[in-house]
Amino acid sequence: MNLEDLKKIREKAEKDIELRQKKTRIKIVVGMGTSGIAAGAREVLKTFVEEISNRNLLDVVVTQTGEKGLASQEPMIEIFEEGKPVIVYGNIDKKKAQGIVENHIVGGRPVMEYVIEAK
C-alpha cells in the first residue's frame, strides 16, 4: 500500500455512487480525557473505527472529545442521532462497543444495560 493506491481509492469513490459519503445519520463521540484514556478509551475508539469501516457504514462518524466529567464511568460514549435523545453509555469496552454497533447503530435498538443517561 502506498499513496498511489490511495489515488486509486479516490478515483473509484468518485465514479462509484455506492462509495460516496452520505449525510451523517449517527455521530459517536468517545470521551478522551485523562481518565477515559487511562480506562481504555483508545481501544474503544479503535473498535468503533474498525467496525464502522468494516461494515462500510458511510453515514456514521466517530470522533473524540475531552473529559466527560464522570470519571467513575469511563470510558464513556455518546450517540447523537437526529430527532432522537442523546444516548450516553458508560464503562464501555471493546466487546460492548461491538454490541453497540450491532444493536444500536445498525439495528436501531439502544443496548439498555449499558445506558447511563438519555438526554
Binding site: M1, N2, L3, D5, L6, K7, I9, R10, K12, A13, L19, Q21, V49, E50, I52, S53, N54, R55, N56, L57, L58, V61, V62
Partner: peptide, 24 residues
C-alpha cells in the same frame, strides 16, 4: 496533509480511507 491532498473532498474517516490507512 499529504493524505488529504490526494483524497480531496473524500473525508479521512471514510471507510475506504480508514482501510487504506490501516493496511498502509
Amino acid at each position: 496533509r499529504e493524505i488529504k491532498d490526494i483524497i480531496g473532498d473524500m473525508p479521512v474517516n471514510h471507510p475506504e480511507v480508514v482501510k487504506f490507512l490501516t493496511k498502509f
